[in-house]
């Protein structure tokens, strides 16, 4: 910014007449250099702010998407099941101890309902 020698108003670089009092603005080389530097700093800081805001918005959006994926889209784990065990042969190698007779008509018993 270039200060007006008459009223002290800060005018943007490149201004020929003061935006407040209308006086002609005189600027030496040092003031112009300072003004350019200050404008560059200002632009750079605004860029940082923009970048930060974009990163924050993108990050928040991705986080919401990830949470939706994790807790709403992924199906629930099936219930645990008891794995099979080796309970041995159905019929042992040795012969039965008692001599048996066939059943008259008794049907096989239904098992209890299994999970």
């Amino acid at each position: 910014m270039i200060p007006c020698q008459a009223c002290g108003n800060q005018n943007p670089i490149g201004t020929r007449y003061c935006r407040r009092c209308g006086e002609k603005v005189h600027a030496d080389q040092q003031q112009v250099m300072q003004a350019v530097q200050s404008t560059n700093d200002d632009l750079a800081s605004r860029k940082w702010l923009e970048r930060g805001r974009s990163a924050l918005v993108i990050g928040a959006f991705l986080l919401v998407c990830a949470l939706v994926l994790r807790y709403a889209v992924v199906p629930p784990m099936p219930s645990a099941e008891v794995p099979p065990v080796d309970a041995g042969p159905f019929i042992p190698a040795e012969l039965p101890k008692v001599e048996a007779k066939a059943e008259a008509a008794a049907p096989a018993v239904k098992p209890a309902l299994a999970r």
Partner: peptide
């Protein structure tokens, strides 16, 4: 400073989102 802090927070959110995903 505020912009850089927001950028860092945004990157952290992206990392957290990647981990959760």
């Amino acid at each position: 400073l505020v912009g850089m802090s927001m950028l860092a927070a945004g990157l952290l959110l992206v990392l957290a989102a990647a981990g959760i995903a």
